[in-house]
Design a protein around this nucleic acid. Structure first.
Length: 512
RNA sequence: GGUGCUAUCGUCUAGUGGCCUAGGACAACGGCCUCUCACGCCGUAAACCCCGGUUCGAGUCCGGGUAGCACUACCA
């Protein structure tokens, strides 16, 4: 029987959603869509001490921005969080009663036991015995329901003594995990420890227990997650078995990690700060530690570029195609073309992707997106028609919307100083004379369109044998302040006759 | 330390025993275009971790090294 494909993205609200997490969410989403299945979102907030206010909203907003749709669980719609589906609640902190019941099942069936060892006692043990592990070899020397008489255990519990529930791992067994990306992984149960399933600290289960129970109850068919979970996959298999759920156990796929662009190790928030690129989708103001992390959205990235970039980090299509829309990704995605090795995060390529998608946006749309940058540079309420025009003239030379300012600033503000290097190369001895004459030619122009201007200026240059490059470059310096920018007639077109002439006069005054 | 995963140009990767003289993309470099700077186009340079084995034949399969990464919490 073919099970309905149901996958989940299950982040912890401990801060901004890491870009690696975004990719995990994306792959889950692509897989679900391709198979006509469901994409769920569940919040794994079983560590009350690490909870960061606003993180949940952030995660959901990020996914909404990126267009990673959620079919069930928690999602954001127009700035509001909503819960959909029959398998809720979708926050683990709201599922305490459910977990109680399953912990009891494990206790009753002898797959788990109660342990009274305090964190301090365990710490002391680890200090005393090198490589101490709470397992079949050591548990009989500890304070737990396996070593203490039932009455004593009961007495301690009645007294309110703190305790945890541990999973009883049977020794000497090869546990097989079938991974969709890596194939068969075998680990001997001797290296597994008796993991804490239920914490005394906050009356909540640990990740391992909650994860298995929820995935089972939510009928998850495939668990697609980061490689950091591979070592605990055997434990999860053992848990499914202990519950008697082996027949409906999901299939596993462990994704390669995103690594630092330079050096070794996995990509972290610090790398972004250090190398100057975002590692989070959206800007995040951490209310807990007061830090601010930059985001792709605020840096001028387009969501479709982020998606495309991320999709290709650890996965490749069936051919040489690199530019993929979400629809194309859904069509072409396949877990067996996910690579096994970690990928260094090459944000240079991310820029290229953004450049590509920027060209696809309309000038009007980009003009709107350019508004905040303009405002930051003191340009209030600009003529949007004009902004769209100059954006259209310059967008092919930028990777990000904010960079448009460096390319278009002279359209908005007349140059007050002139680039020295450009002057040295392009402002010749004859330039003042040329410009003075050009002023006259332009003043007498019958109309102010590119064709007309070109039609009178070029013959004038030729007639005097001034040299096109000499004159035009000097002219450019007058208008732009440097040797850069779009075609000169495109500039005069936007500036208009009055402003163009004013700039030439101003330049003559300053440069002589 | 233990366990597991991984290993092709600087980077992301193609490659599933002969199609490999190892392909594509980013970045780099050079050229063309041109009134400038870019864009674009064309081109150049650049890699199979090492050692054995299997085979007529290995980047591809096997073994051993080495290296990198992950995990090893009452974190997820």
């Amino acid at each position: 029987m073919e099970r309905r494909v149901r996958v989940r993205f299950a982040p912890s609200p401990t801060g901004a959603l890491h870009i690696g997490g975004v990719r995990t969410a994306l792959y889950n989403y692509l897989f679900a869509r391709q198979h006509g299945g469901d994409m769920l979102l569940r919040i794994e907030d079983t560590d009350s001490t690490r909870f960061v206010p606003g993180a949940e909203e952030y995660i959901l907003e990020a996914l909404e921005w990126l267009g990673i749709g959620i079919d069930e669980g928690l999602r954001m719609r127009n700035g509001k969080i909503e819960a959909v589906g029959e398998h809720g609640p979708y926050r683990q902190s709201e599922r305490r009663e459910i977990y109680h019941q399953y912990v009891k099942q494990l206790l009753d069936s002898g797959h788990a036991y109660i342990a009274f060892d305090t964190p301090e006692e365990l710490e002391a043990k680890r200090a005393e015995i090198p490589n101490f592990q709470y397992d079949a070899r050591t548990r009989l020397a500890m304070r737990n329901s396996l070593t203490m008489p039932a009455e004593e255990v009961k007495a301690l519990m009645d007294k309110g003594e703190k305790y945890v529930v541990r999973f009883k791992v049977e020794p000497d067994e090869d546990v097989h995990v079938h991974d969709l990306i890596r194939g068969e992984v075998v680990i001997n149960s001797n290296i597994l420890d008796d993991k804490v399933l239920y914490k005394s600290a906050d009356d909540l289960p640990t990740y391992h227990l909650a994860n298995i129970v929820d995935d089972h109850l939510m009928e998850i068919s495939h668990v697609i997650r980061g490689e950091e979970w591979l070592p605990s996959a055997p434990l999860h298999v053992l848990l499914y078995r202990a519950f008697g759920w082996q027949d409906t156990m999901p299939q596993f796929a462990h994704l390669p990690l995103l690594l630092k662009p330079d050096g070794n190790g996995k990509l972290s928030k610090r790398d972004g700060d250090r190398l100057g690129f975002p590692v989070f989708p959206l800007e995040f103001h951490n209310q807990k530690d007061g830090t601010v992390s930059s985001g792709y959205r605020e840096s001028g990235y387009l969501p479709e570029a982020v998606i495309n970039f991320l999709a290709l980090l650890g996965w490749h299509g069936s051919g040489d195609q690199e530019l993929y829309s979400m629809e194309e990704l859904i069509k072409d995605f396949s877990l067996d073309r996910v690579s096994k090795s970690g990928a260094k995060f090459d944000y240079e390529k991310g820029k290229w992707f953004n450049h590509q998608y920027l060209q696809l946006r309309s000038n009007e749309e980009l003009a709107q997106m350019f508004l905040p940058t303009l405002k930051a540079n003191g340009i209030e309420n600009p003529d949007m028609q004009m902004v769209a025009t100059v954006v259209g003239l310059t967008k092919d030379r930028v990777n990000f919307v904010p960079e448009l300012w460096e390319q278009t600033n002279f359209f908005f503000v007349a140059p007050t100083e002139y680039d020295e290097k450009s002057l040295k190369k392009r402002w010749k001895e004859d330039s003042p004379k040329h410009m003075t004459e050009l002023l006259e030619v332009l003043e007498n122009a019958p109309s102010w369109d590119a064709e007309t201007l070109d039609g009178i200026v070029m013959p004038w240059i030729e007639a005097h044998e001034y040299g096109v490059g000499i004159v035009m470059n000097a002219f450019r310096i007058c208008l732009v302040g440097a040797a850069r920018g779009p075609h000169i007639w495109a500039i005069t077109d936007v500036l208009g006759k009055e402003e163009t002439l004013a700039r030439v006069r101003a330049a003559l005054k300053i440069l002589g």
